[in-house]
């Protein structure tokens, strides 16, 4: 299926011709568009490819105006075949190009899973470093937009579990811009998860700021009583939880992980040593999820600082449910605060 109810209301990204004002406010979607635009300008080897990315500008309009400005050789619609898209991106990369692939929705990456896991991830290793594949796979992911099946999933753990891939997910427009540019400029394959329910959130973006490494976690709200770690769409939920907790006199530190692979456990550990408590939140199922990895790393390095067990808040070990009950499935503010309460009760 496709373009969801919300996609229809997608704010048009930066206008095709006028460059966005520096330090202006952009939606996350517009920031991604600006990152693609800048990358296409900076490096003639950058290509944008996928289903409906040309004339339509993508079902979420992330590639809006790019084909018009950079031509059909650099920004092009592919046949409807994800394995084909990623497989040919690999070949293009071997030939010196930097393909940025769009997968239309999270649930449609799986036809390409074989190419990603058996080829894209393993080529550098197999070739003893002689073959470099700078391929970026952009995937709008996560729920909360009232969509039909396969349009709300959080499959990041599959990719983080695969050696040879880097896995990123920005939470803000500024990071969407900076992290995507870095991903495209880097030498390794990156699976770039875009929090689709945050596409229309606005934030300041400095288009000319020197890009910070995308592979480091960041403390986005300092606190002293407990550390809340999240990424992508859940960062805003955790910030809201920290705000609500502050009103009850509790000081929560919020960390935006930004990257799942590599995972910046150091920044989290440094925080937990101070707060003594950790709650990890993500939309992906908790079972075998990223939170389990972080919890394990933290208990190993912070065992004597921990005053409570590390708790996880995530999706259930179940297929993503129909939209009418998705808000019970998704870990929202209440579920995060429930975990915070339980951790603080120790």
């Amino acid at each position: 299926m496709t373009a969801t109810a919300t996609a229809a209301t997608t704010a048009t990204a930066t206008t095709a011709t006028a460059p966005a004002a520096p330090a202006g406010e952009l939606t996350l979607a517009a920031a991604l568009n600006a990152a693609l635009r800048r990358s296409l300008e900076d490096d003639p080897k950058v290509l944008v490819m996928g289903e409906d990315v040309g004339t339509l500008g993508g079902v979420f309009r992330i590639t809006d105006g790019l084909q018009k400005d950079f031509g059909e050789t650099r920004v092009f619609d592919t046949p409807l075949a994800e394995s084909g898209i990623v497989g040919t991106a690999i070949g293009l990369a071997m030939r010196g190009y930097r393909p940025v692939v769009e997968i239309q929705f999270d649930g449609f990456v799986f036809p390409a899973f074989d190419q990603i896991v058996t080829q894209l991830a393993k080529m550098r290793f197999r070739s003893h470093g002689t073959v470099t594949l700078p391929v970026v796979i952009r995937i709008p992911y996560g729920g909360g937009i009232g969509a039909v099946e396969h349009h709300s999933e959080s499959p990041e753990a599959y990719f983080a579990h695969t050696g040879g891939l880097k896995v990123l997910s920005p939470a803000t427009p500024a990071d969407a811009y900076g992290m995507l540019r870095q991903a495209i400029a880097g030498p390794d394959p990156v699976i770039f998860f875009e929090p689709k329910r945050r596409y229309w959130d606005k934030g300041p973006v400095d288009l000319d700021a020197p890009p910070a490494s995308p592979y480091q976690a960041r403390v986005v709200r300092p606190g002293t009583d407990l550390t809340l770690a999240a990424y992508g769409p859940m960062v805003a939920v955790c910030l809201a939880a920290a705000q609500a907790a502050a009103e009850e006199g509790r000081s929560l530190e919020v960390i935006d992980l930004r990257s799942l692979s590599p995972l910046d456990t150091g920044t989290v550990a440094e925080s937990v040593v101070r707060t003594g408590r950790l709650v990890v939140a993500h939309e992906a199922p908790s079972f075998f999820g990223p939170g389990a990895e972080l919890a394990s790393a933290v208990q190993e390095s912070c065992f004597y600082s921990l005053q409570a067990p590390v708790l996880r808040v995530g999706g259930f070990h179940a297929p993503y449910p129909p939209a009418r009950v998705e808000h019970e499935y998704l870990p929202g503010l209440d579920r995060v605060l429930d975990a915070v309460d339980r951790a603080l009760a120790h």
Partner: peptide, 22 residues
């Protein structure tokens, strides 16, 4: 609207420890 508990139904033919716990 369906009951939220439908989330946990018909995932497996019989029980599953983690699903049951959740």
């Amino acid at each position: 609207d369906p009951e939220p508990s439908v989330m946990f139904e018909h995932i497996h033919a019989a029980g599953h420890r983690q699903v049951d716990a959740e």
